[in-house]
Design a protein around this nucleic acid. Structure first.
Length: 201
DNA sequence: AAGGCCTACAACCGCATCCGT
DNA sequence: GACGGATGCGGTTGTAGGCCT
């Protein structure tokens, strides 16, 4: 929404802890430039994803492999859908988070075009606050106040009615667990075959 | 108009897990 | 089975830009 990361100045100012990869002498940190993005994109289009450790050197980048992978996965991949998260997507995130907890990659796997980082950020900046403001613990998706008399009200997320109640009422415990299992199994299958084709080589 | 505060998000870090040897 | 390297994941942080006073 805000700014293309390439325009961000700085970012190098992380804490000066010893870090295993990016603190190697000569490796760059912080925001990516347009030139770096292009180098990375071109290389991956040519050679494919993976081998992140050696990729930067081959691509002519002064970055660590982790940084390259993150940049590609969260920003440069053609399948990444950037921009506003729709109400449907938000609803889905809420449901999936209730089922899966903070397993952002699993959640992202169910939402085409969205990355785990994006969903995590959206959750932390929007949805958790929203739930808190409604008196719902974002970790448990249960009301802070255990008084049952307020539960139904608290489920009505923004008071504008339609479709909202489904988010927290959609599953009883039995269907919840079976849905969770199928969800995870399905995700494991799809991640092996589609979502992360270059996961291991 | 200026300064401080808040929000959003890209990027980094460390740990967990996977996989080959 | 043990070990080591590579990759993936989730938590956290830094900072640009917007908002408020």
């Amino acid at each position: 929404m805000r700014i293309p990361s390439t325009s961000r100045a700085g970012g190098e100012g992380k804490k000066a802890k010893p870090a295993p990869c990016c603190t190697k002498v000569g490796l760059k940190r912080g925001s990516w430039t347009a030139e770096e993005d292009e180098l990375l994109s071109n290389y991956i289009k040519r050679e494919g994803e993976g081998r992140w450790r050696t990729l930067p050197k081959k691509a002519g980048l002064l970055r660590c492999g982790k940084s390259c992978r993150l940049r590609w996965m969260n920003y440069l991949r053609p399948s990444v859908k950037r921009g506003h998260i729709s109400a449907d997507e938000e609803d889905l995130i809420l449901r999936l988070h209730r089922l899966l907890g903070n397993r952002w990659s699993l959640i992202a796997g169910r939402i085409p075009g969205r990355t785990d980082n994006e969903i995590k950020n959206y959750w932390n900046t929007h949805l958790s606050k929203k739930l808190i403001s409604e008196g719902i613990d974002p970790k448990t998706h249960k009301p802070f106040n255990p008084n049952p008399s307020i539960i139904n009200h608290s489920h009505n997320r923004d008071g504008d009615g339609d479709g909202d109640k489904g988010i927290l009422d959609c599953c009883n415990d039995d269907s919840l667990s079976s849905f969770l299992n199928s969800l995870i199994n399905d995700e494991m299958f799809s991640s092996q075959h589609q979502d992360h084709p270059a996961q291991h080589y």
